[in-house]
Design a protein around this nucleic acid. Structure first.
Length: 586
RNA sequence: GCGCUUGUAGCUCAGCUGGAUAGAGCAUCGGCCUUCUAAGCCGAGGGUCACAGGUUCGACUCCUGUCAAGCGUACCA
């Protein structure tokens, strides 16, 4: 419909040019939007106001001329000038009603498109360090990232979902050592757990499993383990020196092979948990990409060599630096430390080189907002590698600030005091959690009161949308119980009987669905889809209360049933896209 | 200090990429179930869109400045 109006207007502009009213060189962008108010018809354009100045006419006069030049079209019943110079179009309801038939034909394919034309897009999200279970902060990235991925897939992109596993670095050593110390406790050793170790219960579980499976294989007496280890902070020492010494001790006492075993046990245990958690949350990945692999297969060396060859690398104070400040970053960054170890950033350069080599047309990184300062250096690295930085899109997700009954909940993986995603899912339910996370714009700071979310689950808007779906199902069930059947062709023939205010509104909303999906996908804003579903549900509930569907008049009955069936279909399509269930009864 | 993000109803948030009278949920108040699910509907009150300038036919939306909040500003990951 929009396209049709656009071409009508383009023709009108050409006519005016031919008549000498408009200058030949003018090439206006035709802007057509849906009218917000029904009084203003269905669509409106601001064309006359845009052209008023170059044409040296007042907008309303020009609008009149445009309308005169406009070719007539069956679907357009009325065109009028309004306000400062809007041209409003009123569309024949009959043309709009066709959407109901379209929805019947396309079913769960309605709303899908080929906009993406099969372009390859990678969406990397969550990628939380595997040092503990996912907490509610990660949940937002998980829900948002998967919604973005699903939307892109729906509009025809070939999407690959990826989780970057930070399985290298000091944090992981701390994790391995924490597991080992808990394991020693399982063996019966008595020790003071380092203040900087991971204290969560999940570490004890992993340690207990290890002990069950391997008995005392990794056991060493505590006296040996802590011999000449610098004091921990609570004992007046330095917590970092303390834990680093313990890591080194673990490596010597266990040897490479056994240390690696313990390390791997910890990593696998947590990763398995994360994987299961996400899968249960409706988030599935095609790829789990290991940071350690980049080190082992020489990718990091290769990336640095490429940067060096391109003249972006220099040595200073014993370290190796990437001259990112010349490519838009605030300052240069270390890639290889004085001690010879590469930095996390070096891994990330290699990782992005790898992504580029995999031939994606678009690379989307979804990061926590606390990483925003990181964007310029990654873009700088991509540019230095000779890539188009436009290929990379970083979407930031603000963290939710957690409250419990008005009091802020502090979260720290290290101390083990945090609310896990799993707890949240169990408390508020799968659908509510997903819906809630995606409901708000991703860059919006979010307050999340757990007490409110858990105590008043009925107020969660997800039920409102699901309820609309269930109500339609219920009507269709009632129909069968009354020995009646939905006559689809009869409904199609009588769509013009749908003249009630609520019916017109619903039909108009149904026609919007494909546009909403496209917009939500292209702008990476799944909350637009949520808003749409809430509006559609509201219009349906309103309709439900105002009119009876199973009426004696066969023509009206079937027309109405076709309409509400279409509503159910679109609600289901939208909820499915968001991986939210569509209950048939509630 | 500098940078990024945000500031809209009592609270939590939308506002369709510059359009017509700024919307919804919760909370408050008043109505609607002997007929398809009341997890619903109908209605009322509630706003200096942080503040001040600017850009133009028109600004919650764009620009500048001020104020406030969160985050960042490592040879941590």
């Amino acid at each position: 419909m929009k396209q049709k109006l656009e071409s009508l207007l383009l023709h009108a502009v050409e006519t005016l040019k031919a008549d000498g009213i408009l200058e030949r060189e003018l090439n206006p962008k035709i802007n057509i939007e849906r009218a917000r108010d029904q009084l203003h018809g269905d669509f409106a354009t601001n064309l006359a106001m845009m052209l008023a100045k170059p044409a040296k006419m007042n907008p309303r006069q020009l609008a009149e001329k445009i309308i005169v030049a406009l070719a007539t079209d069956k679907a357009v019943t009325k065109v009028e000038i309004a306000g400062p110079g809007f041209i409003n179009f009123f569309i024949d309801p009959k043309a709009q009603y066709q959407i109901i038939n379209t929805i019947h034909q396309q079913g769960n394919k309605f709303g899908l498109s080929q906009l993406g034309a099969g372009k390859k897009v990678q969406v990397e999200f969550v990628s939380a360090n595997p040092t503990g279970p996912l907490h509610v902060g990660h949940g937002r990235g998980a829900a948002y990232g998967s919604a973005v991925a699903e939307l892109l897939a729906a509009v025809g992109f070939e999407v690959e979902r990826e989780y970057y596993v930070n399985d290298a670095g000091r944090q992981m050593d701390i994790l391995a050592t924490s597991v080992w110390l808990r394991y020693l406790e399982e063996c019966g050793e008595v020790l003071t757990f380092p203040s900087n170790g991971y204290r969560g219960d999940y570490i004890r579980e992993i340690a207990a499993n290890t002990h069950r499976e391997s008995s005392n294989e990794y056991r060493h007496p505590v006296t040996l383990v802590f011999e000449e280890i610098p004091a921990d902070e609570p004992q007046g020492g330095d917590k970092d020196k303390h834990i680093d010494a313990l890591i080194a001790r673990a490596k010597t006492l266990l040897g490479d092979k056994q240390y690696h075993d313990v390390f791997q046990t910890g990593l696998n245990g947590i990763l398995a948990d994360i994987r299961q958690d996400l899968s249960e949350f409706g988030v599935d990945y095609q790829q789990w990409f290991s940071e350690r692999q980049l080190m082992d297969d020489g990718s990091i060396d290769e990336a640095l060599t490429r940067l060096r060859d391109a003249g972006h690398i220099y040595e200073k104070e014993g370290a190796t630096w990437f001259a990112s400040s010349q490519l838009g970053d605030e300052k240069d960054r270390v890639v290889v430390r004085e001690n010879g170890q590469s930095t996390y950033f070096a891994s990330d350069i290699a990782y992005h080189m790898n992504k580029l080599d995999r031939g994606f047309d678009q690379i989307i990184n979804i990061w926590g907002a606390d990483h925003h300062g990181y964007i310029p250096r990654v873009k700088a690295a991509m540019q230095a590698l000779g890539a188009d930085t436009e290929k990379l899109k970083v979407l930031l997700v603000q963290f939710a600030v957690l409250y419990r009954g008005g009091e802020q909940v502090q979260m720290s993986t290290r101390s083990g005091s945090f609310v896990t995603l799993r707890q949240l899912r169990n408390e508020v339910g799968q659908d509510a959690a997903r819906f809630f996370y995606v409901m708000r714009k991703s860059e919006q700071h979010m307050d999340f009161d757990l007490k409110l979310a858990t105590s008043k689950t009925n107020e969660n808007p997800v039920f409102y949308v699901q309820y609309a779906h269930a109500r339609v199902c219920s009507v269709l069930k009632q129909l069968a119980e009354k020995g009646l059947q939905r006559d689809i062709p009869a409904g199609e023939e009588n769509l013009d009987k749908l003249t009630a205010e609520q019916e017109v509104a619903l039909v108009s909303s149904l026609t919007r669905y494909p546009e909403v999906v496209e917009r939500a996908a292209v702008q990476y804003e799944p909350h637009l889809l949520i808003n749409y579903l809430r509006e559609l549900a509201a219009e349906f509930h309103s309709y439900y209360n105002a009119h009876q569907f199973i009426v004696d008049d066969v023509a009206i009955r079937n027309a109405r049933l076709n309409l509400i069936y279409s509503v159910k279909q679109v609600l289901a399509n939208g909820l499915n896209l968001l991986r939210i269930n569509t209950p048939e009864s509630m």
